[in-house]
């Protein structure tokens, strides 16, 4: 069977793929689980039962969700503008979208903290309205939105490019209003890619450490993110406790990814039938 393929070497490439994934992904995950399991169930429950850990997990996942939703909305807008309109500087803006990928996260965090601090270029305007962004949860969301944006835009762009403009014209000529065209014709085609993009942005944001610690106040129970709790546990040579929090994050992320995949399948069925 393998011999009839255009590119030979199925066995070899599959073997390599499995080996590579095992080495790069499964091995560290296995190490994580093994280390965490050294705590036993009681120890594990004690670590996760502490209010500080729970608060940190909540801060991380809730902030990541808000950031992902914001990115979904504005990422869609951005992708739409970049694909559908031709204007001067389009390529430059297109390239800018990748910046959060390329910038070291610590640099991004320090830059954002400088901008949004009460004396910063942006922060001072909010400070006049008595709103503080840096060193609050809002600051965390700002940083997470920054790191997640490219995921949404880059997943939506190819889908938007494939979307035939004639379909919209057809919808219009058949009497659909602008809103109907958008909500019944364009959006359904975009939803799977939009969900994928938002999921990627969410997953990236939930585990983000480098940029957040500079703009979050890092106050236990308030602005302390879960990866920081992991770091503080490590600082105290509490390796097992750190891996327990890590394993909990992993479990929550896997559950959410599973839920999103089910949602994907469901929307595809529903929209496919329509």
């Amino acid at each position: 069977m393998a011999g009839r393929r255009v590119i030979p070497g199925f066995g070899l490439s599959l073997g390599f793929t499995l080996f590579y994934l095992g080495l790069l992904v499964l091995l560290p995950l296995a190490a994580l689980v093994v280390k965490a399991s050294s705590l036993g169930f009681a120890g594990f429950a004690q670590v996760l039962g502490s209010p500080q850990v729970q608060a940190a997990l909540r801060v991380s996942f809730v902030s990541a969700a808000i950031a992902a939703l914001g990115n979904g909305l504005f990422g869609l807008l951005l992708a739409w503008v970049l694909v559908r309109y031709r204007f001067i500087g389009r390529r430059a803006i297109d390239a800018l979208v990748d910046l959060p990928f390329a910038l070291p996260t610590a640099v991004a965090g320090i830059a954002l903290a400088t901008l949004y601090a009460p004396q910063g270029w942006i922060g001072q305007w909010f400070a006049r309205a008595d709103i503080q962004i840096a060193y609050t949860r809002a600051g965390i969301v700002v940083a997470l939105t920054f790191v997640g944006l490219p995921f949404v835009v880059r997943t939506l762009q190819p889908v938007l490019l494939d979307l035939d403009a004639e379909v919209e014209q057809a919808a219009r000529s058949l009497g659909a209003s602008r809103w109907q065209t958008f909500s019944r014709v364009i959006l359904p085609a975009l939803v799977p890619a939009l969900i994928t993009g938002m999921t990627l942005a969410f997953a990236r944001a939930a585990g983000e450490y480098g940029s957040v610690v500079f703009i979050a106040g890092n106050m236990p129970g308030q602005t302390e993110i879960a990866p920081l709790v992991i770091m503080t546990r490590l600082e105290q040579f509490d390796y097992a406790g750190a891996t327990a929090v890590g394993a909990a994050m992993l479990a929550v992320s896997l559950l959410l990814l599973l839920a999103v995949n089910l949602l994907q399948a469901w929307t595809r069925r529903k929209l496919g039938g329509a």
Partner: peptide, 21 residues
């Protein structure tokens, strides 16, 4: 009364001196 808990001494200095917090 602590406004920001940085991770290290240098971070706190930056917060106080450069961010004016």
């Amino acid at each position: 009364n602590v406004a920001v808990l940085d991770l290290g001494a240098r971070g706190s200095t930056t917060t106080f001196v450069q961010r004016n917090i």
